[in-house]
Design a protein around this nucleic acid. Structure first.
Lengths: 342, 342
DNA sequence: CTACATCGTCGAAGCGTTTCAACAGTCAGA
DNA sequence: TCTGACTGTTGAAACGCTTCGACGATGTAG
């Protein structure tokens, strides 16, 4: 292993000079800098992460808790992770993967100084992990939005607003009885933050417009077809559907087309999903994009800022955007950006 | 921060004694051990990972390179990751996420002593990263199977054998013209290891049986339907289909049912995908499970053994299993385990 | 020409572990 | 009773880096 001492010797300078060249924390003459940089290159030196973290009391690693629970949308999770990793790297941070849903994994990483900060996904409305997290020294950011007093910075897509936006669109198309075909039952049951907020926005918008709206759990499989049939059987006059379930979307779409509830002439669906999923369905659907990768990079930005000592933004919500595909004039209706602070 | 010195003082012993209690590398009297353990518990001590890695020259972290390229099956990737993380934890290892496809990310992690070993997914038949990896000090395991001289331990599902097995089944059902509906074109184009091997096994089995077999790329979207139509148009007599594309499966299934190529009475499909995907399709299909999580934990086992200094097994392939769902007697045909070594 | 910043560099003191060599104490065998 | 082996414990030396304080050398103002 090549150490900083080897570099120092090769360059004919002291160890501290090499260190200062690398960190830029002191002014160094151009000639010295060049000699050191050349020595680093020739020897292929890269500093020992452990030694560095011991001396500097920081690791340049962020712990990322990702959900393994059933019912979560892997596609979206992966995109969020992608966004986090890529953006964290631009700030010079690596990602340590934490998967156990039990918060002791995070505690272990934090107390063992393995990470400088924690990023937690798959937040529930009343998440039991938050208690543990508040006692840690490292800054923490939630991807999601718990209910009640928010003691911790949060980043997420504005699902509540997305509910309003979808209802707006369905109303504009003349629908007066709406259904939200949502996440699998287990996701709703544990009050996953995004599902709760979407339902809240959807129902509030329906109530505000004095229109009937109902929320339905839906499995991520072909059984989604059955759910559609049940919803229609329960209220045959339902004509507008907000679908928030990536895996179920193809099935729901197919069934609604079959039963004449959706066509390009008479559209009845707004899909809430990543763009490529909306495009992969055999026919046009209006959709609100879940900007999963953007959520990830926003979260990475926030947490890196916090590590750098900047004050966290409280809550940062990414505004939804509706893309219309069912009218002949294809337009992207951008919604005003709603970055709120708490 | 509470250090080992605090624990030592609290317990009334020396620092080294505390260290030996934790590592178990020396015999300690029961009374001392208890005192130390109590002190650790009261103070809530957990050792500083950086200091530990500096002194012991090992990090207890494994770097995992996961693919972000287009066309890969996120579902399968996630399951592999799950398996890796869970199994690595049982060996006391954490996972550092590396996502850049450029091998310099891995080099950085390795040379900076951030990881004790590397696990690389999404291997291509002639993977350019392997050259870089061989020059690293840390042991490396590939999840996948490159062609040619294998200088590195590999773990994977036996896709080649799966090709044979699928053909066996289709032949047994009386099919004589077979098609493999496979991965997206970009995956085939870059010669992703599993796609190559599956095609090889499939074609070899067809040739051995003196039967027509063809391989087709297929996008992971509703356009899969078009691919089915093209395949059938090109050779209307094709009756047996091996489908290896999780996202396309529902569409391919639907189209083959519509066109009368598949029904429970006259089955024409073998699906190669995770079990739950095969079960989510609206009707019975025979399937060969891709045991993604098992691949992940097998890889974790191998790499942990290597770190522990045990000799690697060369190549470890997990044998495929066919599950028959289209006959009235539902049986799992287990294939003889084929763990080969190179 | 002196006084005083400023600049570039260096020596050395940590950072919190692990682990080696050594050392008291106990015990069994001669 | 003495010797040697073994047990349980300890002090101190690494491990490779960051960073503080100090120190000449140079430039600038009085």
């Amino acid at each position: 292993m090549v150490t900083i001492a080897d570099v120092a010797e090769e360059a004919g300078v002291s160890i501290s000079t090499v260190s200062y060249v690398m960190s830029g924390k002191r002014t160094i003459s151009p000639t010295t800098r060049q000699r050191v940089e050349r020595a680093i290159a020739t020897l292929g030196f890269s500093p020992h992460a452990g030694a560095r973290s011991l001396a500097s009391r920081s690791t340049n690693v962020i712990g990322l808790q990702i959900p393994l629970r059933s019912g979560v949308d892997v596609h979206v999770v992966m995109e969020v992770v992608t966004g986090v990793v890529a953006q964290a790297r631009t700030h010079g941070y690596d990602i340590l993967l934490l998967t156990s849903d039990d918060p002791r994994g995070m505690e272990r990483a934090a107390k063992g100084s393995m990470v400088d900060a924690l990023l937690v996904m798959d937040i529930e409305s009343d998440d039991p992990r938050i208690g543990v997290l508040t006692h840690l020294e490292q800054p923490t950011v939630l991807i999601g939005l718990p209910e009640g007093r928010r003691t911790m910075p949060c980043v997420d897509f504005d699902f509540e607003e997305a509910g309003w936006l979808a209802v707006d669109r369905l109303l504009a198309q003349g629908h007066r009885r709406l259904a939200l075909i949502g996440s699998p039952a287990e996701v709703l049951a544990r009050h996953t933050s995004y599902a709760d907020r979407l339902a809240r926005g959807f129902l509030a918008a329906c109530a505000a417009a004095n229109v009937v709206g109902s929320v339905h759990a839906c499995p991520s499989s072909a059984d989604a077809t059955a759910v559609v049939d049940e919803v229609v059987a329960a209220d045959p006059q339902v004509t507008g559907f907000l679908v928030h379930n990536e895996s179920a979307l193809p099935h729901v779409f197919a069934r609604l087309v079959e039963t004449g509830k959706h066509s390009s002439a008479k559209p009845g669906i707004v899909a809430l999903c990543p763009e490529d999923v909306a495009l992969s369905v055999p026919g046009p659907v209006d959709s609100i994009a879940v900007p999963a990768e953007a959520i990830g990079s926003a979260a990475a930005d926030v947490i890196c800022d916090m590590i750098a000592g900047e004050t966290p933004p409280g809550v940062r919500l990414i505004a939804p955007t509706l893309t219309v595909r069912t009218s002949t004039d294809i337009v992207a209706t951008k919604h005003p950006s709603t970055t709120r602070a708490t």
